[in-house]
Design a protein around this nucleic acid. Structure first.
Lengths: 163, 163
DNA sequence: TTTCTGAGTTTGACATTTGAACTCTGCTCT
DNA sequence: AGAGCAGAGTTCAAATGTCAAACTCAGAAA
């Protein structure tokens, strides 16, 4: 950050009620909510699938999903699985999708500090195919979200088609 | 995000234990931890000041600070207030400071979706003075964190020097 | 109609959070 | 030196939230 950081600051320059960060935190207040949104980013939207991936108790998942929908981050959608029964899945709304930079910045930070810089996901500009990251840019200089593409980094030989 | 997003994904492509985002979330698991880190970003580091700003119970603050220090996001430092007694304050470490893009991306999101795009903080490149933001950039194209400067946005006439 | 399955809700034991009261330490005042 | 005070916690009981297992319910399949 680094402003003139000499004397201790006694009070935040921006009160909670006017700070975008604080307001955002109210919408994603806990670990479970973050992890659920992470799942949805990866495209995992069905109740049981989310539950299995992150090992969340059903009762908690149900409550968190309700909040997430209430806050407009995701919505519940019906879809047709193959040609079979109607199913439901939660999918991010535009508002939810716009959390991508946050989640990706978090991922970059986690990769750097908890995984010695090894990322499990490769981000690229889908126009050029060039690698991208989240960072500080001159206003107007960022690539639009819809150009972003990601692919899991190749792990050691994975036996390819498992099943 | 937008990969080939047709069939529903049944499982996250990156397991929790290898996902930088999931690992990061473990270090900042709840609302209070986020808010405390927000305070430290603003330079607020003293126990009582943090407590007053975010209205956290002392017992919880004390526990969260211990975790934050344990995770290496901040450290407790002694300093001399004026010429008076020794005091202590918590200050972000390098690791903690590198959360800036996450927090700022969160702020941008909050400003856009909860404040009609009005930000309480103006970010600039401190060399050029040009406004900056957090976004997707070609790898190597981001400005270094230390060039970032911020200032509270002018609110409607604030009577200056309150008191 | 019965069965199955995905998506919850309910339950009751356990854990965490709250807010108030209490402690401890190191100045500062007399 | 001794009393007082303020900052930075700790301790406690009540309220709230979490967990895992058992239960419910609706729609499709047999």
């Amino acid at each position: 950050m680094s402003n003139s950081e000499n004397s201790p600051v006694r009070e935040s320059p921006v009160p909670m009620s006017e700070c975008g960060a604080a307001l955002a935190i109210e919408q994603i207040p806990d670990r479970w909510t973050w992890l659920i949104i992470r799942e949805m980013f990866y495209g995992v939207g069905r109740f049981a699938d989310i539950q299995a991936d992150i090992s969340i108790p059903k009762s908690v998942l149900s409550g968190r999903l309700a909040q997430i929908v209430e806050n407009g981050l995701a919505k519940k959608e019906a879809y047709r699985d193959g040609s079979s029964r109607t199913r439901h899945a939660y999918a991010l709304t535009q508002k939810g999708r716009e959390l991508a930079p946050v989640l990706l910045a978090l991922m970059q930070w986690g990769d750097r500090h908890m995984k010695n810089g090894e990322s499990a996901l490769e981000l690229t500009d889908k126009r050029s195919g060039n690698p991208v990251k989240i960072g500080i840019v001159p206003k107007g200089g960022a690539l639009p979200l819809r150009w972003l593409s990601y692919a899991p980094t190749q792990k050691k030989s994975d036996g390819t088609s498992g099943d």
